[in-house]
Design a protein around this nucleic acid. Sequence first.
DNA 1: TGTTAGCACTCACTCGAAGCGAGTGCTAAT
DNA 2: ATTAGCACTCGCTTCGAGTGAGTGCTAACA
Lengths: 346, 346
Amino acid sequence: MAMDERKFRILQAIIDDYILTAVPVGSRTISKKYDMGLSSATIRNEMSDLEELGYLDQPHVSAGRVPSAKAYRLYVDQLLQTGRLRTDSEMAVRSHFLGRMRQMEDVMDHAAQVLSSLTNYTAVVLPPTGTQPRIRNIQLVSVDDNAALAVIVTDAGVVRDAVIRVSEELDQDALYSVSRTLTGELAGKTLAEAVERMPEIIRGMQTQAELLEGLGDVMTSRQQKNHPHVAIGGTSNMLSYPEYSDMEKARSFLSLMETRDRLADIIGQKGEMAFTVRIGPETGVPEMSDCSIVTATYTTGNGQQGTIGVIGPTRMQYSRVLAIMNTMGRQLSELFGTEDDTRRLE
Amino acid sequence: MAMDERKFRILQAIIDDYILTAVPVGSRTISKKYDMGLSSATIRNEMSDLEELGYLDQPHVSAGRVPSAKAYRLYVDQLLQTGRLRTDSEMAVRSHFLGRMRQMEDVMDHAAQVLSSLTNYTAVVLPPTGTQPRIRNIQLVSVDDNAALAVIVTDAGVVRDAVIRVSEELDQDALYSVSRTLTGELAGKTLAEAVERMPEIIRGMQTQAELLEGLGDVMTSRQQKNHPHVAIGGTSNMLSYPEYSDMEKARSFLSLMETRDRLADIIGQKGEMAFTVRIGPETGVPEMSDCSIVTATYTTGNGQQGTIGVIGPTRMQYSRVLAIMNTMGRQLSELFGTEDDTRRLE
DNA sequence: TGTTAGCACTCACTCGAAGCGAGTGCTAAT
DNA sequence: ATTAGCACTCGCTTCGAGTGAGTGCTAACA
């Protein structure tokens, strides 16, 4: 016995219904609500087959059927293949971004906010991180007599700053000349390369050794710190779904959301696809055994890739979510300077 | 009938027990567990009085008594007066801060983390915001040919940056000289004052009008944006307490935690006291009608005040929380440069 | 007069039985 | 191959009895 056209249509109906109601769906429901021109008995037979094939689970003998992870997998793959990602919510996304924001992190936070409120699930946005970002400019700014602020501008557009304290007094002009030298020496290098070259530079410069060493430390720590900023939105949305009426589950989910490092790891692992859909056990995260994670990527001007993700129950509204993320991803790509490319295409 | 010594001792025992168990406490429990040398019957009489006085509530006639908000109030005031804030957890706090962090926001996040994990409640940390911060240094750094990064250093030590896009090409040396002029003109001024002076400066400088106008915009928006960074820790802790076994309550609490602006408003309203304890209705927040909020302040080098807050159920372990916050507040004050003062005292 | 023992009473909570009903699987008819 | 019919299953809800923690009141006691 194999999967045929009709079985697939029935399965689809079951998934659709389950996504909507979160209640095991019975044969009668399918034959009535989704007019297939088949009686409940026939549906029952087919459902029995589908169960045998592993697409349906039965919580208990006299309950309806529930789609298995395998079923969602099929459903989603179908969705992705046919590519019919309707973008009716495109306008909604677009309108949210009318006032362009300046700060990357603001944009990310905002995107997570929007994404979660459009989908009603939990949304996560990770900053672009692809090929090692390259240094464009280094500036040292005096904060007070004994402290300087190091601003490192990379081609990712991301700027991280850190205060370096030194014992000697600093003056702004000296800082500026150091900044120039540093920028000259290090522009175009990755952070890792820059860290390597620092000792040499320190030897060459003679002065300001303490400051430069501080800078080296900063670059090292920035480099290791691989979770720059994780924007999360709509954590509480998760609690509105019956699958989280179990407090213990809810708690473990929430505390996972709080440990951003881990979350970034989970969301950040991207495949080569534009969209990744991990369903239930596929997430590889015990706390999320009945969640699904949908991720998509966006691309910045210099080809770096960021990730946006939506976390919801396995029965999430995949087609809706995919459509929204599709739009959102494009929106972000555009916002983060793929505009260069667009211009080139014109 | 008035409150006497014995009534107070009984009330205290009731509160202690309720804080521990979250279960209405009966007369027998008090007479047994807390040996007062009184029979349950006597306790009952006293409890009946205490109820009449408004310190106890009875969920239903055959249940034990539950402390009212008024009771907690009394309890806390007593606690604050006697000032016996034991600092046994002082070491714990101190050890967490061994490796000094550089970035203000990192510190705040970390503090919220520590505070929540020590108390097992939800913790919030607000940045210092007192008298208007004054500008110390303004630097413009080129990001790419058409964009500059504005770094504004204030005496709060907080540094916010924003990218300004212009149509003309920028070169670093020109930017530097503009930076110098700006710093010269605006150092010592508040953001508001700086915004006012901008038009004049633009007239005086002749060149780079577009850039300077962008800078003006940035300053204006930074000034208006009054929720710089709200660090939150242990949101999920709240779900472990039985008072939040009601999903709807949990949800509304969580979504309140997500709207940082509002949260900042709630936590940020400080009295003239070192500690503020708002119990139940006193919070003025419907979603928190059975929460208590404890806030404390910390002080930075230049006298600005930040706030730390702990949110828990009304039956929170006040004495523990107050002790921990006491330590944490001092710790933060020290970290944020009251060290100058300390040194002066030596 | 304050304290205590005793007792009747209340009422949330637990547990099990009964009933309900959605849903299935099987069989026989179409 | 499809469908109508029917017996059967079993989770959920409802209901009532039983339980026990806790109270309030009264009367006795020191």
